[in-house]
């Protein structure tokens, strides 16, 4: 029975992420249109909303091209290893008082650990493409993702210290409004490191189109390319939901259904901010990117952990 429920929740998570990715692409193009004085989708349907329905069949019916020199099975299935962890990470997000799809006692660590499997998927797809640009992109992605995991985990650690639990629903039970100002630096570190983890601008060096074409997914097209996009947008949705819950209090601000609605609105605002950042800032240089992680974000996160630790003594 548990197994059947798990399967159903898994399907629901994949549907949520896939649907969210489609809406996210449309929303991103609208946001980018406003920011950069471009049009964005506007021809098909009101405000171009039907564009997303047009995009999906286009991607599904494109020819599935596998390069001759590629390592074929690895090339074909590596995108799934990028997407699956993202869908898994949604499982531990606390949506409702005392309820998360998978209410694990180590949910907070689970959330931080699972995306690291995605790095492996990116490296394998880069290797499988057997292409120089893909290799460089994959190497950059791996270096960036394992480095930014450090400040990201430390930032979340500050909330774990305050709550005294690794269980997301318990963290939410313990949450107090004054944690928001106290952990605000931690939240910013978490947000920046999350953007780097999902390889989005201004940290999208691994897929920089002006130098690496598209990096580790240069050779992908059609629905395999769409899986990478679903992974990226899914990571954004998942990071926004988790940040909105454990850092910003999520549903705790209002009781009942309005609380859930507010939680989702906060998450959508975070997603919009992430898009705003992408369309505003230029791409960093690779060495600046690594220096920024190790000399700015990590020390800031450590200071945040110390602050949380000192405050937790008086709780």
């Amino acid at each position: 029975m548990t197994f059947v429920w798990g399967l159903l929740w898994g399907l629901a998570a994949v549907m949520l992420i896939a649907g969210g990715a489609v809406v996210g692409v449309w929303w991103e193009r609208k946001v980018a249109g406003r920011i950069q004085m471009r049009l964005g989708p506007q021809q098909i349907g009101p405000a171009g909303v039907l564009q997303m329905i047009a995009d999906v069949p286009k991607l599904l019916f494109k020819e599935d091209i596998v390069p001759t020199g590629a390592d074929k099975p690895v090339f074909r299935y590596a995108p799934l290893a990028v997407f699956a962890p993202v869908a898994m990470s949604v499982a531990v997000i606390p949506f409702w008082a005392g309820w998360a799809p998978l209410d694990s006692t180590v949910g907070m660590v689970f959330y931080l650990a699972i995306p690291s499997i995605g790095v492996l998927g990116i490296l394998l797809s880069a290797w499988g493409s057997h292409n120089t640009l893909a290799t460089i992109g994959g190497l950059r992605a791996a270096a960036q993702m394992i480095s930014y995991e450090v400040p990201r985990s430390l930032a979340v650690l500050s909330v774990i210290i305050l709550a005294g639990s690794l269980q997301p629903t318990k963290v939410m039970d313990a949450w107090q409004w004054w944690w928001v100002p106290l952990t605000f630096v931690g939240f910013l570190v978490y947000l920046i490191a999350s953007i780097a983890e999902m390889n989005r601008g201004p940290f999208d060096l691994p897929e920089a189109e002006s130098e690496l074409v598209a990096g580790y997914f240069s050779d992908y097209s059609g629905f395999r390319w769409a899986i990478f996009m679903m992974g990226e947008y899914g990571a954004m949705i998942s990071a926004a939901l988790f940040g909105a819950a454990v850092f910003l209090g999520g549903y705790r601000w209002l009781p009942g259904v309005p609380g859930l609605v507010l939680f989702l609105v906060i998450a959508m605002l975070i997603i919009t901010v992430v898009m705003w950042v992408k369309w505003t800032f230029p791409r960093l240089r690779q060495d600046h990117l690594m220096t920024f992680c190790w000399t700015v974000l990590t020390p800031l996160a450590i200071v945040q952990v110390v602050v949380a630790g000192v405050v937790a003594l008086w709780l």
């Binding site: 690291s116 499997i117 492996l120 490296l123 791996a142 270096a143 394992i146 995991e149």
Partner: peptide
Amino acid sequence: VGGVLVLVLF
């Protein structure tokens, strides 16, 4: 998986 294996492949 996230650390050692990624570094080996790297």
